[in-house]
Computed example of a mutant assay.
Amino acid sequence: MKKINVLIVDDSAFMRKLIMDFLEEDDRIQVIGTARNGQDALKKIEELHPDVVTLDVEMPVMNGLETLKRIMKTNPIPVVMLSSTTYGGAYNTVLAMQYGAVDFIAKPSGAISLDLHKVKEQLVKKVVLASKANLHAFRMDESLSFSQTTSFLSDKNSSIELYPSSDNRVIPVKVAKSIVCIGTSTGGPKALQEVLTHLPKGLGAPILIVQHMPPGFTKSLASRLNSLSDLNVKEAEDGEIFQRDTAYIAPGGYHLTVRKMGTALTAHLNESEPRKGHRPSVDVLFESISQLKDYKKIAVILTGMGADGTEGLKTLKSVGNTVAIAESEETSIVYGMPKSAIGTGLVDEVQPLTFISNTISQYLQT
């Protein structure tokens, strides 16, 4: 069996040795080199041609973000970032995911983590997964040129009403009550950026999102997406009322569920047991939304490892009034979650990533 050749990039000699020892305990992996900064890494990549690179975010000479951008531009290979859980570290990690990193590991206790053994299994698992990632998907955005910004009001026969947006502008929207729910995992931050930045204001529905991420990172993800999108994007807060034209990301470490309070929908967070290893869980969110009998529900499953969302989708479909959309294999960084959902036969639309926002808009109009 061919081994996965890994290059380790970290400015700490101690961390390089620790990461190497952990990875080489797995007989599927061999470390073929190390680098102490980004410049050194770019040279080693040209010399060694690794299958996967582990890349520290914070380094001197050339930091992890700049190194990643150069890798993805000149010689795209799977990259797993290692990051601190500080606010700055979390935000830079989110940027890295949107620049093309396949996944990331949060160092337990800062730049030099003596307790890195706590995430050893995650590290090995994510390196193995990264070696199988669809790097071609990172270039699909350019090859699939398609105008996503379709007017929400293109259907002149639709019944509409005037509704104040969060910035007090009056926007015509559909009368029917609708809700959009999205589930994603590996490759999700980049996929969410593509979808949310091409959804226009005036959708007339809240968007609820589960992105598999540990605590401390989802707030940075929401902040980054909010800065890029016409929609409001925020981390969901317990008890808040969901607003139209706002996307809510489940906080890392909490399940996000929905409850009705009079005519409003409210967010409820809980720390009940992880579902299939995930908290937040797409299944938990989808099952909660299935209780909204008088709402049109649009469920979207994007790139990700595993099958989270499949059972929830079955529940949504069993109660009716649900449209299911899944990302196609050609653009999925990891075609696990979409493939599992499509395998149920319950998915209505299978679309490449660049078409998904337009598909959501169209279904909200009907």
Rank of each mutant, 00 (worst) to 15 (best):
M337N: 02
E58K: 15
I105D: 01
I182V: 15
P206S: 08
Y163A: 09
I333S: 02
H117F: 11
V173I: 15
K132T: 13
D10V: 04
G306L: 07
E349H: 14
R224E: 01
C181P: 00
R169L: 08
L208C: 15
I179W: 02
T54V: 11
E329L: 00
S318Y: 11
E46A: 15
E273A: 12
K132E: 12
I241T: 15
I71Q: 03
K177A: 10
L135P: 01
A90M: 06
I333D: 01
L203Q: 08
I8Y: 05
K118Y: 05
K3V: 05
V233I: 14
T310M: 15
N321S: 10
A111F: 15
K219C: 01
P108N: 08
S154R: 12
T67A: 07
S84G: 15
G262V: 10
K107Y: 04
T344F: 10
E330Q: 14
P215Y: 09
E142L: 14
T266A: 14
L23M: 12
S178A: 14
Y163P: 00
L269M: 03
L114Q: 15
A137G: 04
K234C: 11
V31D: 03
P214Y: 01
R259S: 12
D10S: 12
Y91R: 13
L225F: 03
A247E: 01
Q98E: 14
D103P: 06
A236W: 11
M59T: 08
M140L: 08
F146T: 13
G306T: 08
D10M: 07
S340Q: 06
G100D: 00
S158R: 13
D21H: 11
D283M: 07
P50C: 06
I77K: 09
N75H: 14
T150P: 00
A236G: 04
Q148L: 10
V173C: 09
S113R: 09
D245S: 10
V258W: 04
K260S: 12
I105A: 06
S340D: 02
A101G: 09
P50M: 05
I179M: 02
Q122D: 15
G100K: 00
Q122F: 01
Y363E: 07
L285P: 01
M1R: 12
V128W: 02
A247Q: 00
T331I: 08
T263R: 13
D245K: 04
G343N: 08
L353N: 09
